[in-house]
């Protein structure tokens, strides 16, 4: 092997190693920070990853907001108009948060209710995020598959 070839081979090998490491790191970082969106019906049907974070999309059910009287804890119900999911959140809600408003909450399931770390409401009140609209449409389509009584969990 000539010195030039050897140098090239080393260079190519180094580049391949670098690309490999970069790919592995990127994929890992992507996987760890990827969250899927589910509707309450999908959550109750057991589609969600156990114990992992996901996003819950739906409409805040009317007359469901209950505030704690001493802290910033607030309980409310997110619905896709077929199934309901109780949500617990501690913090300041966005300006646009209100009953009947579509929201996306990030968090995970704990003891049968959803504990949110972040709640987003969309800007235009007449406008439902495409994601939530789709989740609701999907819930509609799933209606036949999901048993009327939600499974335990």
């Amino acid at each position: 092997m000539t010195p030039t070839r050897k140098r090239r081979l080393i260079a190519v090998a180094l580049i391949l190693v670098a690309v490999g490491i970069a790919t592995v790191l990127t994929v890992l970082a992507l996987q760890q920070n990827m969250t899927y969106l589910f509707s309450p019906s999908e959550v109750l049907a057991g589609h969600t990853p156990g114990g992992a974070n996901f996003r819950l999309g739906g409409v805040v059910l009317e007359h469901s907001i209950k505030r704690d009287s001493t802290s910033l804890k607030v309980d409310f119900v997110v619905t896709d108009r077929f199934h309901d999911m109780p949500v617990e959140y501690t913090g300041i809600l966005p300006d646009l948060f209100r009953e009947g408003q579509s929201i996306v909450a990030t968090g995970k399931m704990e003891n049968g209710h959803f504990v949110a770390q972040q709640v987003l409401a969309k800007h235009d009140e007449t406008y439902m995020p495409k994601e939530v609209a789709e989740a609701i449409a999907k819930a509609k389509a799933m209606k036949r598959d999901v048993p009327a009584t939600p499974p335990q969990g």
């Binding site: 970082a29 760890q32 920070n33 990827m34 969250t35 899927y36 969106l37 996003r55 994601e131 789709e134």
Partner: peptide, 8 residues
Amino acid sequence: RISIGPPY
């Protein structure tokens, strides 16, 4: 519907 979080 996937979302990639800021930590990535």
